[in-house]
């Protein structure tokens, strides 16, 4: 019971931090905190809350081996699918939107 309560408090903490930061940022006309910092810190808070809920709500450390193994495997696959897709698709985007600037070089002329 106490475990759950601690988990709630910690989760609330990270939630308030995330929303608070963005709230402040918006309030200051999107200038107070650099975007890049937010793009790093907010995901970190999300991961922190994931870990909090995994320990305090899901009680994973007390689970049996299989539960922990497939949880780890799931994290791996999620990272591969999301990260991999982002890497691949942005790479495509980058390589395909290259326009020739000015005249194409002689080898690339069509006639």
């Amino acid at each position: 019971m106490k475990h759950y309560f601690d988990g709630l408090i910690l989760s609330l903490l990270f939630t308030l931090l995330s929303f608070g930061l963005v709230g402040m940022h918006v309030h200051m006309n999107h200038t107070a905190i650099p975007h890049e910092l937010l793009y790093v810190v907010l995901p970190l808070f999300a991961v922190a809350q994931l870990l909090v809920q995994t320990v305090y709500f899901l009680h994973l450390p007390q689970g049996n081996g299989w539960n922990k193994f497939v949880y780890g495997f799931a994290i791996l696959i999620v990272v591969l699918v999301v990260g991999g897709s982002l890497w691949i698709m942005s790479n495509l985007q980058h390589n395909q939107s290259e326009m020739f600037i000015g005249e194409p070089s002689p080898e690339h002329q069509l006639d």
Binding site: S18, V22, H35, Y39, L42, P43
Partner: peptide
């Protein structure tokens, strides 16, 4: 809420 909403609001 992090990646859809908060990112979308920044």
């Amino acid at each position: 809420f992090t990646f859809v909403y908060l990112f979308g609001i920044i």
